[in-house]
Design a protein around this nucleic acid. Structure first.
Length: 553
RNA sequence: GAGCCUGUAGCGCAGUCUGGAUAGCGCGAGUGCCUCCUAAGCACUAGGUCGAGGGUUCGAAUCCCUCCAGGCUCGCCA
């Protein structure tokens, strides 16, 4: 809001400025480097700064304008700053935002018959945060979950159940089935003589033959039930679930269409699209037995998705390792003149790895979500009990659950998506420093102050908010909208998470340096308003990242 | 072999898209701070050839080129 004001003043002098925050506070509140403009005009940047400093006069917002070498440094009027920022935040004024479009965002896409591990959690955390940020940026978001409920992994799992004569338990079916899949997989690697049986199951499932379909549907439902518990726990509501089993027919149809158009062709019995001229290799749409592979199913999904929602953009939040896959898919969209062509985007993120290497459901060397959550929760509970021995058990338990969930989600969204996360228990169980609990703690601290403050007077003297730390805090609070816009534009939620850490750090420093509530009633009143503005900002940013709020801890 | 990603303090990471003033934060290490609004906090100290080399620029962690290291991907898995 202040940047715009400054921009207009400088543009009135015929210069399009770059406005930044100077590295040190004594340099001013905003700075305009003039190197480029000076070169364009063939002038000395320092002289240009002096020239501008004379032409821009202080007003009710700007207190002082100073030329400092090649920079124009601008100082704001503190009282105005506090009033502007605090009323803006507390009245929840929304800046005029442009109407975005309809965004179909596809994420999570965990397979049934496999256990949910922390890699899935990274996807779910990033995905939901990006949806919320995109909504704030003015888009209508349709959350889509496209799940692999059929295919070789299911065939192997069902084969394992029969071969080892296992019975599915009532509780924890998804994890149990994941275990069976893992066991079957290991066994089959050493016993290739059973490959035929598995392939037969796969085909039987595709043909919906009664013998296997019944068991398939039963196990599938049990998995989906477990997944929906996770969605609830994570506060994620999908608008539409698609299943591979549901789109594969349409996929085969689309593959055949491409064959008719001459875009796809037969090779070694399979139906392929040859993109090797474009350096994207060869895409196999249908196997030799005519069952569809992933590209074909995605073609079917694209058709259905665009028919149902006609989105302006179709976003796929999927691991980086599938980058080539999506380049191929999007190219086929173009070749086949799909509606999805030029509207589809792949947002890649990197894996969660273990110190010893890649996690693999097949191998079974995974950190399961449930396991991690339980360990985090019990650690948090220990902390809560120490701090609040008087709390009733259910309050302590609920608080611990929130702390654990916040810690987990925050750890996933605070890292730049294209960076590999190497999981370590030590890190995961650390609730200090740049963590979710740290931010929650700051929020609880704000609340504690506000709770303690009792006053019914209404008039506020904003000029009492005049400390340097307070000014920095106000600037930070005011920066939120810009950070959200950057996050939305670049699909990187970590910008907002980092922002929360910085804001929390600033507030905690301030807290230790200055007393908010004191015998000076006017001062206390003004400072409490500042605290309220910080609290609102933290709440809002946390909510955008889908991190649960905790008002007391 | 080709394509993409990553390389910043002992460890974990911001900053790179959009070049700008003395490169930041967390953990760990050391030293302090709870008769005072929540110590899951705060302050101070130590810790850096920003992978290497070259180029562009008044100015490079940031842009370009080459190389090195690690990761991922490249025809019937998803």
């Amino acid at each position: 809001m202040f940047k715009e004001h400054i921009r207009k003043l400088i543009e009135a002098n015929g210069i399009k400025p770059v406005i930044q925050r100077p590295p040190r506070e004594e340099m001013g509140d905003f700075a305009v480097p003039l190197f480029e403009e000076a070169r364009r005009q063939g002038k000395n940047p320092a002289e240009l700064a002096l020239y501008l400093a004379e032409r821009i006069h202080p007003n009710e917002i700007i207190r002082e304008v100073k030329a400092e070498g090649p920079y124009l440094n601008i100082f704001l009027n503190k009282a105005r700053l506090a009033e502007e920022v605090i009323t803006h935040v507390l009245n929840k004024e929304q800046e005029d935002k442009k109407r975005g479009g309809i965004l179909a965002v596809e994420f999570f896409q965990a397979n049934t018959h496999k256990a949910v591990h922390i890699g899935h959690i990274r996807n779910l955390s990033i995905g939901e945060a990006l949806c919320r940020i995109a909504e704030r940026a003015g888009n209508r978001v349709i959350r889509i979950n496209y799940q692999g409920d059929i295919g070789m992994h299911v065939a192997k799992c069902l084969w394992g159940m029969k071969h080892f004569n296992l019975k599915m338990p009532e509780e924890g079916a998804a994890e149990w089935l994941g275990g069976v899949y893992m066991k079957a997989n290991k066994f089959l690697e050493a016993h290739s003589e059973f490959d035929g049986e598995v392939a037969e199951i796969n085909i039987a499932l595709h043909k919906r033959e009664k013998e296997w379909t019944e068991l398939w549907l039963k196990t599938r439902e049990a998995c989906l039930k477990d997944f929906s518990k996770l969605y609830e726990e994570f506060d994620v509501k999908f608008d539409r679930f698609y299943f591979e089993s549901e789109v594969e027919q349409e996929g085969v149809k689309q593959a055949r269409e491409l064959e008719k158009k001459g875009i796809a062709k037969r090779s070694e019995g399979a139906l392929i699209v040859d993109l090797s001229d474009e350096n994207m290799g060869v895409v196999v749409l249908l196997r030799s037995d005519d069952t569809p592979l992933y590209h074909a199913k995605d073609l079917g999904l694209a058709k259905i998705k665009f028919r149902e929602f006609n989105p302006d953009k179709s976003i796929h939040i999927v691991g980086k390792e599938q980058e080539l896959y999506f380049r191929q898919l999007f190219r086929i969209f173009e070749l086949g003149k799909f509606e999805a062509a030029h509207k589809s985007v792949h947002i890649p993120y990197e894996l969660v790895m273990l110190p010893e290497g890649k996690m693999s459901s097949r191998e079974g060397n995974v950190v399961l979500y449930s396991h991690l959550r339980d360990r985090m929760t019990s650690l948090a509970l220990k902390g809560v009990k120490e701090r609040h021995p008087e709390w009733p058990a259910n309050k302590s338990a609920a608080t611990a659950g929130t702390i654990a969930l916040a810690a987990l989600k925050f750890s996933m969204v605070k890292i730049e998506p294209l960076r590999i996360i190497t999981f370590s228990w030590e890190n995961a169980l650390d609730f200090e420093g740049e963590t979710g609990p740290y931010v929650l703690y700051t929020l609880a601290r704000c609340n504690s102050i506000i709770r303690k403050y009792k006053d019914d007077e209404e008039s506020v003297d904003y000029s009492l908010i005049d400390k340097e730390e307070e000014k920095q805090l106000l600037f930070k609070v005011a920066e939120k909208e810009e950070i959200i816009a950057d996050s939305a534009r670049t699909f990187r939620p970590h910008l907002l998470a980092r922002y929360l850490i910085e804001l929390s750090q600033m507030f905690n420093e301030y807290y230790h340096k200055e007393r908010v509530i004191s015998s000076d009633r006017g001062l206390s009143r003004a400072r409490v308003l500042l605290v309220k503005a910080v609290r609102e900002t933290i709440r809002d940013a946390l909510t955008l990242l889908n991190i649960p709020l905790l008002e007391e801890m």
